[in-house]
């Protein structure tokens, strides 16, 4: 593990991304205790960026910067919850498929392929449109769409670990297969799936923003996608309403992708140059 830390530290993009994500978390928590209400409206409607509104204000006089800061919470919680759900599901399903193999494995892999060829955004939009908006629903939909990636990586790694000699040694001690899978194989096989999980956070943030942009989210919540949705009507006379939330999404998704890449490179001792 200390090797992992030192290899990770040698990847500047990964360190920068980790610092950025850490800062986001701190800001999001800080915003909750600031006592500021991001939904409060004022007469300063559609003002361009200035000293009183650093990133301008929207058509109801709400500050864009405050909106972006409060939007972090939605983006991150959707991202993290969806990624945790998808990764856990993927570890469980991929672990069992890879360990027991046979017909079960065949079926699971075909199912993951079906998910991979389905256009995920359209499927998500249809599910949310039919079942109605709501944060938990969006998280569930994203997790449902993202678990196959985690499952495939997990399956491959479990297949590698299960044929190592220590697994056979433990089997010769008379332990049950379930114990061996849970206690011996999975702990040694989860790392690459964790890297995939970080990438899923980025995808989930993007998908949530896209769904909100199309108005498929709770209009009372302050989220980046929601800000883009209301900003599009003023694209030509108030560019700041679309530009700043869009940039926030871009940088955050990029950060999670870099973080995921750096984690998987740091996990591979041959990967860092």
């Amino acid at each position: 593990m200390s090797n992992f830390t030192s290899r990770f530290k040698s990847l500047p993009a990964g360190v920068a991304a980790a610092v950025y994500v850490g800062a986001l978390v701190v800001i999001a928590i800080g915003a909750q205790f600031s006592g500021v209400d991001p939904t409060i409206i004022s007469n300063d409607a559609l003002l361009p960026p200035s000293t009183s509104h650093f990133l301008g204000s929207d058509e109801l006089g709400r500050d864009v910067l405050v909106g972006i800061i409060f939007g972090i919470q939605i983006s991150l919680s959707v991202g993290f919850c969806a990624a945790i759900a998808a990764t856990s599901l993927g570890i469980f399903i991929g672990g069992i498929a890879g360990y027991y193999g046979g017909a079960l494995d065949l079926i699971v892999m075909r199912v993951t392929e079906v998910f991979q060829v389905v256009p995920s955004f359209i499927l998500a939009a249809v599910i949310v449109a039919l079942s109605g908006p709501g944060l938990t629903r969006i998280i569930a939909v994203i997790a449902l769409l993202a678990w196959p990636q985690a499952a495939r990586v997990m399956r491959g790694e479990v297949m590698r670990v299960k044929q190592l000699e220590f697994v056979e040694a433990v089997r010769c001690l008379g332990y049950k297969e379930g114990y061996i899978l849970l206690r011996e194989v999975i702990p040694n096989a989860v790392s690459p799936t964790m890297a995939i999980g970080t990438l899923i956070v980025g995808q989930a943030i993007l998908l949530e923003a896209a769904l909100s942009f199309f108005g498929l989210s709770n209009p009372d919540l302050v989220s980046w996608g929601r800000m883009l949705n209301s900003g599009q009507r003023f694209l030509f006379n108030a560019w700041w309403l679309s530009f700043f939330p869009g940039t926030a999404i871009l940088i955050t998704v990029l950060a999670f992708n870099l973080l995921g890449d750096s984690i998987s490179r740091a996990l591979n001792p041959k990967g860092v140059k």
């Binding site: 000699e165 220590f166 056979e168 040694a169 010769c172 001690l173 008379g174 702990p187 040694n188």
Partner: peptide, 17 residues
């Protein structure tokens, strides 16, 4: 099977790291 115990060739793979 616990009456038989293995000792393997590759000792670096024989233990859960």
């Amino acid at each position: 099977r616990t009456a038989m115990q293995p000792v393997f060739q590759d000792s670096s793979a024989a233990f859960n790291p």
